[in-house]
Design a binder for these strands. Structure first.
Length: 716
RNA sequence: GGCGAGGUAGCUCAGUUGGUUAGAGCACAGGAUUCAUAACCCUGAGGUCACGAGUUCAAAUCUCGUUCUCGCUACCA
């Protein structure tokens, strides 16, 4: 969109169940903030919204973990996250929260409109129900054995141990965390968003219209989803934490909006609240086609912001995003960042260790902003290393940028009496002119790159201008020129004029640097303004490229350093701290194992319901011998076995391929449930089930007779 | 297993529609300098563009295969 009337910029709503790390910052918040600061410096009409995502089942779960209420959890994390962003210079126009009444009403209205228009479908499904607690169970309230790694305490939506995402049906031996009992299946009614109806729209909109201006990772992932077949997606849940369905909806009692549905609507309600606070009208931002909507997110959020939310917006009659510049992931010191594995650098930790220290201050926020922009995962996963952080600071921010500003000010005080020297226009050399021309050239490059969301390259251009400044100063050598004195020790007129021109240009360059660096390093830009004794208004983007930002004869402040060096000791401290967190984690693993053991014990007292002998007798167990085994094609975990039971040889499909190779199990005797109803897996009919035992580590063992016995022997 | 993104100098990354000797910054080496935070400036070294075929006058770039990393997704009685 060329020259839109107004901009609406969003950053992914962080989930209010814990502190966020610098991967989140680099992915969704920092680039958005840079973009917004750039637009605002251009005096564009722009609103930057974000807020805490406070619904979903992880919140009450976290509450249980911390022994408190869901409300207390969000009230605890929301202000901390808001403060973290503020400390790091992320300047949202509003940092809202989805627990706010205005959000509840907005989300309910949104649902109602879609429902009234017939854009939702209602389906009845079976879901796990806890009879004792008299409640349907959200995925997170069901725990059981992970089918992937055998971890016995996996959640219904994801296994914390191996990270695999699950559905409750996949869990082995599911247990309700409310009562500790095994849940039962019960029918329930839910509203669905039929994405499948919108395939043509999505194909056209993403794969055609935005094939070239969206990032390839984003288009690729969307294509993958669309080609995979779009499914109707449940919009409601049986849960008590979240946004209730409107009372007017029949059969909606006890149900809430699924968090994925309400969260992005949070962008809208945040805009409403901002408008209320500022006496504005929120509607044009979401309804006028001349608004450019941009969502900044991490790659894990692509599907929601490019497929699901746009469908919702279209149905509801809102504008669609103009771009969704999703970032890839940021790794840390050679490994993926992960909250559960404790391998991370939280914003709070950085703030504590670098900003809120004696030698810290908000300049240190800019250092992090600088390095994260430098290594931003714009096209592929990238890596944060403490060594890289130190080098970026010491050899670029300190040595090139900070040093240029400092030497310009120091020389000015020494050679120009602390005042901005005049510019003798008739004496400008070619070098002076080309250097001045660089101001404007850099401005244009930065603009062009920022508008393509290429933040890393844009920042490089600014630093490069500082580098140009150093080169310029080196060639002009004002400190040498200052030695051209007359016999009585006075500086010659020529020499003074040369020095005047050189330093005038260097100082104007400093002012330009402040304007250009402002979107990236806002604290630094303001500090330069302070040193140059100009008001922040100078930072308006239209001033970039100009040579008349500072008035001749104006006296400036004594130089102060913009950045300090980061010592080796600070880096090694951080590395040790990171290593220590793993040790902690291992210690907590030991605890986890203890917990698991205790849970195992409690499982023995929490057995499955009692059955009578007849129930057991229904099961026909036989001993058989595996005569052949092969991997099932297109399945990682399945082996197709032929088992000789004496009276017949059967085909049985078993999910043990990750534990055993076909060769090593041929000839083994096994125990088989022979009267289990046949079931097709990956197109192959399985006629029975091999009995396996599983240890704490998730390792599988065959249940078999101590000595080889006749095939077909019964087991009872 | 399927799909998507990626693999380019020691490190972090660029390489537009295939077109001379593949680029930048940092780190490294040598030189110069001293206004400046042992900073700056100049010069240099460095890469079988993951691997193997193919198309072409010409391939980092296009096609096919192999392999590794990350993400999404399927199979688990």
């Amino acid at each position: 969109m060329n020259n839109p009337k107004r901009y609406l910029i969003t950053s992914a709503l962080p989930y209010a169940n814990g502190l966020k790390h610098i991967g989140h910052l680099a992915g969704a918040y920092l680039p958005a903030d840079i973009y917004v600061r750039y637009l605002k410096a251009q005096k564009r009409d722009v609103v930057f919204v974000c807020g805490s995502d406070e619904h979903g089942t992880a919140i009450p779960i976290q509450a249980t973990k911390e022994g408190t209420t869901a409300r207390a959890i969000i009230d605890k994390y929301h202000p901390v996250m808001a403060q973290n962003f503020k400390d790091l210079g992320i300047a949202f126009d509003i940092y809202h929260r989805t627990s706010d009444p205005i959000h509840h009403s907005t989300a309910q209205e949104f649902f109602t409109r879609l429902n009234d228009n017939g854009d939702l479908e209602i389906k009845e499904t079976e879901q796990y129900f806890d009879e004792e607690a008299n409640s349907f169970l959200a995925d997170r309230y069901i725990r059981g054995t992970c089918p992937n790694c055998g971890y016995t305490n996996a959640y219904g939506d994801q296994c914390e141990n191996c990270g695999k995402s699950l559905s409750p049906d996949e869990l082995i031996n599911p247990v309700s965390t409310l009562s500790g009992k095994a849940p039962v299946k019960r029918t329930t009614k839910h509203w669905y968003l039929p994405l499948n109806r919108h395939e043509d729209f999505l194909r056209n909109w993403i794969l055609k219209e935005h094939a070239s201006d969206w990032r390839s990772t984003v288009v690729g992932q969307c294509k993958s989803w669309i080609d995979g077949g779009l499914q109707a997606r449940a919009v409601t849940r049986d849960l008590d934490w979240g946004i209730s369905l409107p009372d007017s909806v029949e059969g909606g009692k006890g149900k809430v909006l699924y968090v994925w549905f309400d969260a992005p609507i949070g962008y809208i309600s945040a805009t409403k609240q901002w408008a209320l606070d500022n006496g504005k009208d929120w509607r044009p931002y979401w309804e006028d086609k001349e608004t450019q909507l941009v969502h900044f997110i991490g790659k894990d959020n692509i599907v929601f912001h490019c497929i699901i939310f746009p469908v919702m917006l279209k149905l509801h009659g809102n504008i669609l995003p103009d771009n969704v510049p999703a970032n890839e992931f940021l790794n840390l010191e050679g490994d993926k960042m992960s909250t559960s594995r404790n391998w991370k650098l939280e914003m709070q930790d950085y703030i504590d260790d670098f900003i809120n220290k004696e030698n810290g201050g908000s300049q240190m926020a800019d250092v992090l902003r600088y390095y994260l922009t430098l290594i931003a995962p714009e096209t592929k996963d990238s890596e944060f290393t403490w060594k890289g952080f130190q080098e970026a600071n010491n050899s670029e921010l300190v040595s090139i940028f900070g040093n240029f500003v400092n030497r310009a000010l120091v020389l000015m005080h020494k050679l120009c009496k602390g005042k901005v020297p005049p510019l003798h226009a008739d004496l400008l050399t070619d070098l002076d002119k080309t250097t001045i021309a660089e101001f404007q050239a850099t401005k244009e490059k930065v603009e062009s790159l920022l508008e393509q969301y290429k933040f890393r390259d844009a920042l490089f251009e600014v630093i490069n201008l500082a580098r140009t400044g150093n080169q310029y100063m080196q060639k002009k050598e004002p400190w040498i020129v200052a030695k051209q004195t007359t016999e009585n020790g006075q500086l010659t007129v020529d020499a003074q004029q040369s020095i005047d021109n050189t330093l005038h240009i260097c100082l104007q360059l400093c002012a330009n640097l402040a304007v250009l660096i402002n979107p990236f390093l806002p604290f630094t830009a303001r500090k330069i303004c302070y040193l140059l004794k100009v008001v922040d208004k100078m930072l308006d983007w239209e001033n970039a490229g100009k040579i008349k930002l500072l008035s001749v004869g104006y006296s400036l402040r004594a130089p102060e350093l913009l950045f300090r060096k980061i010592e080796d000791s600070e880096i090694s401290y951080q590395l040790e701290k990171l290593q220590a967190s793993i040790v902690d984690r291992e210690a907590s693993d030991v605890n986890k194992e203890k917990i698991m053991e205790e849970e195992k014990k409690s499982e023995t007292s929490n057995l499955k319901p009692e059955i009578v002998f007849d129930d057991f007798a229904k099961i026909d167990l036989r001993v058989g011998t595996i005569v052949s085994a092969e991997k099932v094609e297109k399945a990682d975990k399945l082996l197709k076995l032929s088992v000789d039971l004496g009276f017949e040889t059967r085909t049985i499909v078993s999910g043990i391929a990750l534990h055993f190779t076909p060769e090593e199990i041929i000839g083994k005797q096994v125990t088989v449930v022979v009267n289990l109803a046949p079931r097709k897996m990956r197109g192959i009919e399985s006629n029975g089930m091999i009995l396996m035992a599983e240890d704490n580590a998730g390792k599988l063992y065959f249940i078999k007779p101590e000595e080889a016995i006749d095939r077909g022997s019964t087991v009872s």
